[in-house]
Design a protein around this nucleic acid. Structure first.
Lengths: 221, 221
DNA sequence: TTGCTTGTTGCACGATCGTATAGCAAGCAA
DNA sequence: TTGCTTGCTATACGATCGTGCAACAAGCAA
């Protein structure tokens, strides 16, 4: 017996969906992709999962981004910008003392929202794309150059001679990245405070060593 | 018109496949998984791709490992062991001077087969699993503890006081890992020789700084 | 109220995923 | 040669993947 009426699946006066400005919708999809990437990792970030997280139809991803790859790349750019903003804000709020600004940068690297297992999942997914795709590799190179440039500036303000800035910045970037990675992967080995102390000790050693080198007391390498 | 005979797809006297000892076959599958992981990354490491690389039927993966996850975990253990062996061999071949042994460790970290884009792809895939799965996370913790323990021993031989060994080892591990990661991700920014020089300069600064601290000249942190 | 623009839905398509299983056959033992 | 053990193949299954497309409808303009 077929019913002669259709059961309403929603209140008749409530819209089935809300139209949104294209750019705003893109932002919402990027935000959803960020959450899914953080929660389920790279393998879980499918078109359907992201669309469900954003409470929209899967077709919208193709419509606004042309494909899942472009959405992931846009998410990479967005997360990178958020990390940069968090680090810049920490440095800007540290006052005028160059050494304090450098310490603020390091401290922010090991504090939320940067030192976060969810952010690590996002970053690992991106590294996978950096290896596999040239366009994402270019995004990474730009971001890394930007990070290193920021450290170089902070080091120059601390009195590091220009000739040593580049290698010192690479060293500190690598140190912070390595500590950040292990802090997120195995939080029980050391905590954020110890990561910060380790980084500070290394930076102090680096600056002292360079100052001695300038005075001619020690000359290695 | 159906032919009255069947076309032979292979010489009648040649075996269609060769039987192999179970343990040996497991090794061959792990080797194939390593190659696929390095070539195509985590997303390309499917059962079918690995089986094709090993020139066997896909069913063999399930038969010998019970599932793709166990094969990937076994591959992780195998690659970790290979890295450990390469580092140990470099240290063992460096003679008796403690400082030279530490330098050999660092140099090996930035040379083949360790500093290799293919190995990075494998490692990134593993990190994704470390985040998603507890059993792989335990594998990682064991490996990291092993690496750090090795550095701690080398540092102790270099005269670093026991109380400082732990944090110094974490610092050097993070520094080398960070340099290794960026060296593999963006080989055009700096090369292996510069990575080695940067790491050596940091280690020199660390050891000098600690020696000064012991003599009471400087006391920070 | 009417019409138009376009953001959005919902479904279908082929490809590929991991896994289970029935049966074949390689190679050793007798 | 015969028989047996078991490594191995081949196939099928359901689930899920990314994408394309036609129709729908929300919301503004007139």
């Amino acid at each position: 017996m077929t019913p002669h009426f259709v059961v309403a699946t929603r209140p008749v006066n409530k819209p089935a969906f809300t139209r949104t400005d294209a750019e705003e919708r893109r932002r919402l999809l990027i935000a959803a992709a960020t959450r899914v990437l953080a929660r389920d990792g790279a393998s879980g970030a499918s078109v359907r999962a992201i669309a469900q997280e954003a409470k929209v139809s899967p077709g919208l991803v193709t419509h606004h981004f042309g494909g899942i790859d472009a959405l992931i790349a846009a998410t990479y750019a967005d997360v990178s910008a958020a990390v940069t903003a968090a680090l810049d804000a920490a440095v800007a709020g540290a006052g005028d003392d160059p050494r304090a600004r450098l310490s603020a940068y390091v401290a922010a690297s090991f504090a939320p929202p940067i030192a976060d297992r969810a952010l690590l999942a996002t970053w690992v997914a991106f590294w996978g794309l950096v290896i596999a795709r040239d366009d994402v590799a270019r995004l990474h190179d730009e971001q890394y150059a930007h990070f290193r440039g920021g450290i170089e500036g902070l080091l120059a303000d601390c009195g590091v001679p220009p000739a040593a800035c580049r290698r010192s910045a690479i060293a500190i970037t690598a140190l912070v990245d390595g500590l950040w990675l292990e802090l997120c992967l195995s939080p029980e080995v050391f905590d954020a405070a110890e990561a910060r102390a380790i980084a500070e000790a290394q930076i102090a050693a680096l600056l002292d060593h360079q100052a001695q080198g300038e005075r001619g007391e020690v000359q290695r390498d």
